[in-house]
Simulated assay, not measured.
Amino acid sequence: MGALLISTIARIELDDDALHHVFSVIVTKLRRREPVLLNWTDEHGMPEFVLVNPTTEVTATYDDHDLGELDPHRLQRLMVQANSNAGLCLDAAMERNTG
Rank of each mutant, 00 (worst) to 15 (best):
A3I: 10
A3H: 09
L4N: 00
L5E: 12
I6H: 03
I6E: 08
T8G: 09
I9P: 07
E13Y: 07
E13G: 06
L14G: 04
D15P: 14
D15G: 09
A18S: 12
L19R: 01
L19I: 09
H21S: 04
H21M: 03
F23T: 15
F23Y: 15
S24Y: 09
S24P: 07
V25R: 01
V25G: 01
V25W: 01
T28K: 08
K29I: 00
L30H: 00
E34P: 09
E34A: 10
E34Q: 08
V36S: 01
L37K: 12
L37V: 12
L38R: 00
L38E: 01
L38V: 01
N39Q: 07
H44L: 09
P47A: 11
E48Q: 12
F49Y: 09
L51N: 11
T55L: 11
E57K: 09
V58S: 02
T61N: 05
D63C: 12
D66I: 06
D66L: 12
E69I: 12
E69Q: 15
E69Y: 11
H73W: 08
L75F: 13
Q76H: 14
L78Y: 04
M79W: 06
M79S: 13
M79P: 05
V80A: 13
V80G: 07
Q81R: 06
Q81D: 13
N83F: 02
S84R: 10
S84D: 08
N85Q: 05
A86E: 03
L88D: 02
L88H: 02
D91C: 14
A92Q: 14
A92C: 10
E95V: 13
T98M: 11
